[in-house]
Amino acid sequence: MKFIKDHIMFILPLVAILLGIEFFLVFDRMTASYEQRLRDGYSMLVVSKEPMTLQELQSINSNIGKSTKIEKNEILKEVSLGQNPQDTQEILNALPNFYIIKLAKYLDTSALDNLEKDLMASKKIKRVETFGNSYSSNYKLFSFIKFILKVFIIFMSVVSLFLVIKQMEVWGYVHRERMQVMEIFGAPIMLRSGILFKVAIVDALISTSIIVLFFLYLKYQLAGISEVDALMNNSELLFQPSDAFILLACAIVIVIISVYIVVFSSREKEA
């Protein structure tokens, strides 16, 4: 019973830390995917006096990813019905060039303002329409959710770390006498702490398995029946095989540091 209690008291905070790490990984993928969708769905309009190539636009600001020219004929098609062809040609000649601009990456609102300023500074460009208001509201909401989640994850990890340290103190107390006796009789550090390493590595494997199984269940079972669009459409982002290795590596690093703290704090000291 005591053995199980000792393990659970270490596994639980470790699971909480790994849960925080996995949430962070999932959230990172989710936000990257969401940013891409925002970026793909967003475009700005640039009006120039002379025709401009993509290279010219990119030389003004490298955040421009793609430009599509709106053909003047398309613009006039609706309004020129019944017009004299000569008049139509004159209008065509007088019309500036219209470009739909797509971004190379997701920008915050100040970077978007800078992009607008850079474009307006060009003598060839007459007007830029960023549709900044809708972009800004999307971006702010997104930033807020991102901030709240990160604060939550950090808070959870810090609290869990304190629990791990607390449990390490218990381990230190439990194993101190044995390790000190072994040290007095000349046992090397690996022999003194061997049992602790074994227990800690087993705990790390158990904790990692719990998180991996939970997220696999989330990905293959819960996401499908959740009726939550964000989960159903992004279930492939919920867990990836590389996460298991990242979690295991993190768990092992945490337990090795924990064991070393216990081992060094239990070393015999000169009175």
Partner: peptide, 26 residues
Amino acid sequence: MGIVFQDYKLVNEWTVAKNVVLPLMI
């Protein structure tokens, strides 16, 4: 060296036999 203490310093979670062979284990 063999060291003997007033308070014995035996490892309580080990059997007597295991305590005795600690130097051999090392």
